[in-house]
Simulated scan of single mutants.
Amino acid sequence: MKTILYARVSTGDQTIAHQEAQAAAVGFVVDEVVADDGVSGLSTCLRERPQGRRLFDLLRRGDVLVVRWVDRLGRNYADVCDTLREMMRRGVVVRTVIHRLTFDGATADPMQQAVRDALIGFMAATAQAQAEAMREAQKAGIAQARARSDVYRGRKPSFSRAQYEAVRSALVEGRGISAIAVATGLSRQTVYRIRDNAAEAEAALARWA
């Protein structure tokens, strides 16, 4: 039996090294890292990614698949649900770094199965909703930037694209403002501004790109 960390990085998202460090920090001893870099989790299913296909070939019954959060598997509701259920059918245990959740097919109790499946559905839906909200915020930000670019660029944002997306992801995951500020290196006030007006934060990034 082995433990495999799957990491996925899309443009401006967390680095693979960061995801490895997070897993190690909470006690995971990883035998192998499989990673896709620059791949969208919304438009590209896990099986269609170069290393995602390899992941399915590597995993065997009794192995543990570690992911930072289910959004690393994907941001498409149906794909994430199908992936988690396929892993459980294969006898693979899926564990998340954030909140230390465990998904396996060991239980035969129908009530426990129902709770587990409901949680899978909720998290998969949250991952897709987050991705769509970020995409809409980006569109709105670009539109605002274009409308104002000929007039005034405003103050340069105190956060990078990677920090912005890290904050948005952490907020959806339910992490506290102080914890997010520490993890991203931003002030609490900046995290609040991003939370309260994501479109304007996106617009500021677009204006200063």
Rank of each mutant, 00 (worst) to 15 (best):
S10L: 00
Q14S: 05
Q19W: 02
E20T: 14
A23K: 07
A24Q: 11
V26T: 00
V29Y: 04
D31L: 09
V34I: 12
A35P: 07
D37A: 10
V39R: 02
G41C: 03
G41Y: 02
S43Y: 14
S43D: 12
T44K: 04
T44S: 08
T44Q: 11
C45A: 13
R47H: 14
Q51H: 12
L55R: 01
R61Y: 05
V67A: 08
V67R: 01
W69P: 05
D71Q: 02
L73E: 08
N76P: 04
C81N: 15
L84R: 09
R85D: 09
M87P: 09
G91C: 05
V93A: 03
V94E: 06
V97D: 06
I98H: 14
T102A: 12
F103Q: 02
T107P: 08
A108H: 11
D109A: 03
D109V: 01
A114Y: 06
I120G: 07
G121C: 06
G121W: 06
M123N: 05
M123Q: 09
T126K: 11
T126L: 12
T126R: 15
A129Q: 10
E132N: 12
E132D: 14
R135I: 03
E136G: 02
I142G: 14
A143K: 15
Y152V: 09
Y152L: 12
R153E: 07
G154F: 02
K156Q: 10
S158C: 05
S160L: 00
A162L: 07
Y164A: 12
S169L: 10
A170S: 15
R175F: 07
G176Y: 07
I177N: 09
I177M: 15
S178M: 11
I180W: 06
T184P: 11
L186R: 06
T190Q: 07
Y192T: 08
I194W: 03
D196G: 04
N197S: 15
A198F: 10
L205H: 01
